[in-house]
Amino acid sequence: TRVETATETAWISLVTALHLVLGLSAVLGLLLLRWQFPAHYRRLRHALW
């Protein structure tokens, strides 16, 4: 049971790290898009909202 718990903890930390990385890359990508294509971003936002 001790090994299982350790594996579970490792998986949880791995998944958390993955989610953090994905979230950060998504935010960075959005910022980059907004910085590179302001007109396109505004049009996209206008279409979405």
Rank of each mutant, 00 (worst) to 15 (best):
P38G: 10
W11L: 02
V3R: 01
L22W: 03
V27Q: 02
A6D: 07
L14W: 01
H40P: 15
L14I: 10
S13R: 07
P38I: 09
L44E: 01
G29T: 14
S13P: 06
H40K: 10
L44H: 08
L24H: 03
H19F: 04
W35Q: 15
E8G: 01
R45G: 04
A17S: 08
R34V: 02
L48R: 07
S13W: 15
A10I: 07
L48S: 00
E4W: 11
T5Q: 00
W11Q: 03
W49D: 08
T1Q: 14
Y41P: 03
R2Y: 13
W49S: 03
L48Y: 03
R2M: 14
L30D: 05
A6K: 12
W35K: 15
L31M: 10
L31W: 13
L30N: 03
L18M: 09
Y41Q: 01
R2G: 11
A26G: 14
A6M: 11
R34C: 01
Q36R: 15
A6R: 11
T7V: 14
L20S: 04
G29E: 03
R2E: 12
A6V: 03
L33V: 10
G23A: 14
V3K: 02
V3Q: 01
T16R: 05
W35S: 15
L22S: 10
T5S: 01
R42H: 12
S25E: 03
L24K: 02
Y41D: 03
L33Y: 09
A10G: 12
G23K: 05
A26H: 00
V27A: 10
H46T: 09
T7R: 10
L20M: 12
W35T: 15
L28S: 05
W35G: 15
L33G: 06
L14Q: 01
T16K: 00
T1N: 08
T9V: 12
H46S: 08
A17D: 01
R45H: 09
R43A: 08
L31G: 03
A10S: 12
W11G: 01
L31E: 01
L22M: 13
W11T: 01
T9F: 11
L22C: 12
T7N: 13
T1G: 06
E8V: 00
V15S: 04
V27H: 07
L33F: 04
L33Q: 07
R43M: 09
A39H: 15
L20I: 14
G23V: 14
V15A: 01
L14D: 05
L44K: 05
Q36K: 14
L33D: 00
F37M: 09
